[in-house]
Amino acid sequence: MGASKLPGYLLGRVVKAAIVVLAIVVCNFFLIHAAPGDPASIIAGQSGAADAKFLEQLRAQFGLDQPLHVQLWLYLKGVLTLDLGFSHRQQMPVSTLLWDRLPATLLLTGAAFLFAVGLGVTMGALAARRVGTWGDSVITVLALAFYATPLFWVGLMLVLLFSVTLEWLPSFGMASVGVEMSGLEAVLDVGRHLILPGLTLGLFYVAVYARLTRATMLEVADQDFVKTARAKGVPEGRILRRHILRNALLPVITFAGIQAGQLVGGSILVETVFAWPGIGRLAFEALLARDYQVLMGVFFCTSVMVVLFNLVTDLLYALVDPRVEASA
């Protein structure tokens, strides 16, 4: 791909992405409204008392008394002007709620992601180099064990060990509350809170990257261009880095792109177990409370994130694998 083609390519992709996001907004809207119950009936249910007037008032206040297509139109109009609406349940603009919670999730998933890719690719590469040996088996089984053990179980065991028995790390929350701290202390405090949830979430994905790296490295190692390089007498370490690993990273990148969309979903359980004030829990709680605007806001936010991520993935493809052309 020539440098001159890049801006046009990007523009095309962005336009397509916008269409996808819009389609997502519309589909989400209908999906969410298809779920039984509405926010008013839930508030009534949780308040332990209700009468017809109460429900009527709430529905009018929430705009639920309007026909569905009018609600959709109002929402779309809002989204187009980047106004994500208002959570009537929480009496707050959705964008405020999202901005409050997004950094926590990005921090958690970012840390888990780096940990997973770093450890996973290393393990996968090590296993591939020692394929068929005991080292390979140990790494494979270890990766599998991470994968096959339910998240909350891992989390709980880590907490039992590090918080209850050893008393090294806090068991929940994102920061100490009600303690005066300087800047550096505050950062370290958050770091301490981050270790357990980050580890728990990351371990799950370590397996995915380890196995993928191993599988593709073995495959690439057997391909002609590697053989050629070897025949030419290129040093083994260089072959591994320049030829094998680089090409084996393709599926890894694919998976990283996919994971962007799962960041939120995967963090729901971890955010719940560790009381991490992130967006995954916000989405889950909004779903249970039928807080439509918030849930759609989260979906909108994640869809924009994923679309951006996929764009980056595709560009990386073009960079890593010279055989693949970015088809505009």
């Binding site: 779920a35 969309g261 979903g265 869809s303 994923v306």
Partner: peptide
């Protein structure tokens, strides 16, 4: 595919099962 991937899968699964 992107469309399905952008929605957090766990939340989508919950939503579908709830509906």
């Amino acid at each position: 595919t992107e469309f399905f991937q952008t929605i957090p899968s766990f939340v989508l699964a919950i939503l579908l099962v709830a509906i």
